[in-house]
């Protein structure tokens, strides 16, 4: 029996996402400086970088949420940069996105959130949708939580529910924005395992944007290291670890933390006293 990766490779072209010479500006400031990147079918590609490196901007462009100044992004063979809203809506049914904060709709239960894409895009009957919703919740280990509101879930549970919603349409590509951000190490490891399981069980291509080194090294087939809108390196975990590029090593050693803060200024900011800088 063929592996999920092999099955996926037969179904999809070798490159699921191709980014070519992508340049983008916010106002007059250039944010991405000619990005070239290829994501292969069935792989987990981690896009890694510190704050302001452009990784979230790159993700938003891949999703068609923002328009580039120049360049092209081919997602599942279609140029996202040239698509109108209607074509993007059609393409979006073949992708799934798990946002950083989950982005669950607070007025809906967990189950309704997960079923929303099915309700909007399919003619399935309510029972079938409910069965599919329960299966996805089971996969993310949230079985029995479908009647709760998002406000009743913990941070880790919200992210898992977001994964269930993102995969309800069995997407070809799954995008995850900072899946481990703000979670304790145990929950973070569980989410890493969930991403691996989703790839292995469903044969998805997965793109993960993160600044968490441990997560990136745990799940990545390949890693793209971004710094100030430039790609420093694309390679396997070992290639990134063993890179002799000073900038890559500098980023790894700083572990993508924020710039050093003056402790007194930080305390002043927290307590609201003095004239500490406001970040």
């Amino acid at each position: 029996m063929a592996s999920p990766e092999a099955r996926n490779a037969q179904r999809e072209p070798a490159a699921v996402i191709e980014v070519s010479d992508l340049v983008t500006h916010y106002g007059t400031r250039e944010i991405l400086h000619g990005i070239d990147l290829e994501v292969r079918a069935g792989e987990i590609m981690v896009i890694m970088g510190g704050s302001g490196s452009g990784k979230s901007t790159l993700l938003r462009h891949m999703l068609g949420l923002e328009r580039a100044t120049s360049g092209a992004i081919r997602l599942l063979g279609e140029d996202v940069c040239q698509m109108d809203a209607r074509a993007l809506a059609a393409l979006s049914q073949r992708i799934g996105v798990a946002f950083q904060g989950g982005a669950l709709f607070s007025s809906m239960t967990v189950g309704e959130n997960v079923m929303l894409p099915l309700r909007e895009h399919t003619e399935l009957d309510a029972d079938t949708m409910e069965i599919m919703m329960r299966i996805k919740l089971e996969i993310v280990n949230l079985a029995g939580y479908e009647h709760l509101m998002p406000s009743e879930l913990s941070g880790g549970m919200i992210k898992r529910a977001a994964f269930a919603r993102a995969t309800i349409m069995d997407p070809v590509v799954l995008f995850c924005d900072e899946p481990s951000a703000g979670l304790d190490p145990v929950v973070s490891r569980a989410l890493d395992q969930l991403i691996l399981d989703l790839r292995d069980a469903l044969g998805m291509t997965i793109v993960v944007v993160t600044h968490e080194l441990e997560s990136a090294f745990a799940i990545a087939d390949r890693i793209t290291v971004l710094d100030q809108g430039h790609i420093l390196l694309v390679g396997t975990v070992d290639e990134v670890r063993g890179s002799d590029d000073e900038r890559v090593q500098g980023l790894l050693n700083r572990r993508f933390e924020e710039p050093d803060l003056d402790p007194e200024a930080y305390l002043a900011r927290l307590t609201g006293s003095g004239e500490g800088p406001r970040a």
């Binding site: 993007l88 982005a103 709709f105 894409p117 909007e120």
Partner: peptide
């Protein structure tokens, strides 16, 4: 990001 979530779900 709920509005973004709607867009990427094709809604």
């Amino acid at each position: 990001q709920e509005v973004d979530a709607l867009r990427v779900m094709g809604i």
